[in-house]
């Protein structure tokens, strides 16, 4: 459903992603793993149209996203939760979620988002910047879900979040997938979290996919070896 082919991304002369090929099925959760500096965030940003790609194509269903700007990609069905959350800190929680409604017809925050994240309803009129890290993460996910994406990209969602909340987040993400029927691509360094949620794990090393494992038949030791420094 979501297909990336012959994909290349470069910062000037230095090529970060070389000739990447992968695809995601509907309702699938894929974890992209790799150590720091292997191109995970670059790949995510470029799939969102923030970092331009040099070659190759990105397709969502029949729609070619390759030459689209970020907001057009969102309108076509991409949702993005960036590394470090990047919520709008001077705006209230409600206003933050409303920014995600730009591409859809809804005027009000859909109630199911507050059902998924009850804490956001409580904090509705607080400024985003005054939330804790875990709450900000929930806010960033709610904001991305507001535009009703078909594919949700999460860049290192566990970064800086305590273990108990990481487990809860894995549950929530699976629940979102089941209820909304979307695909999720999550870039991750924490193996336990990836094993917890992913149907498939891709390992990215120096801009190439060096391993691909299904959750059912995963060789944990092999992936752990790729992640160890």
């Amino acid at each position: 459903m979501f297909a990336v082919s012959n994909y290349q991304v470069a910062y000037g002369q230095s090529e970060v992603i070389h000739n990447l090929n992968f695809s995601i099925r509907p309702n699938e959760i894929v974890a992209i793993m790799g150590r720091n500096g292997m191109g995970k965030t670059t790949l995510m940003k470029s799939l969102m149209g923030i970092q331009p790609s040099r070659k190759g194509s990105v397709k969502l269903g029949d729609t070619d996203l390759t030459s689209m700007k970020s907001y057009q990609r969102v309108a076509s069905g991409m949702g993005f939760v960036p590394q470090g959350r990047m919520i709008f800190s001077t705006m209230t929680v409600k206003e933050n979620i409303e920014t995600g409604l730009t591409t859809v017809k809804d005027k009000k925050v859909p109630p199911d988002l507050y059902e998924l994240f009850p804490v956001l309803l409580e904090m509705k009129s607080r400024r985003g910047g005054n939330l804790s890290g875990g709450q900000q993460q929930q806010l960033a996910i709610a904001r991305a879900l507001a535009s009703r994406p078909k594919v949700l990209l999460l860049d290192e969602p566990t970064e800086g979040i305590q273990p108990s909340i990481i487990r809860e987040m894995a549950r929530t993400l699976k629940r979102i997938r089941d209820e909304k029927g979307l695909s999720i691509i999550v870039s991750e360094q924490v193996l336990s979290f990836a094993l917890d949620i992913a149907d498939r794990i891709l390992v990215l090393e120096k801009g190439d996919i060096v391993a691909e494992e299904d959750r059912a038949s995963v060789n944990e030791a092999k992936i752990a070896a790729y992640l160890s420094v």
Binding site: I50, M86, F88, A146
Partner: peptide, 23 residues
């Protein structure tokens, strides 16, 4: 809503684009 979009864009232009605002 337009004001909300303006404030989002001025705070973080890149991220505003990535939530679907035509910056």
């Amino acid at each position: 809503r337009w004001g909300g979009q303006v404030r989002a864009v001025v705070q973080n232009r890149t991220m505003a684009g990535a939530v679907g605002i035509n910056t």
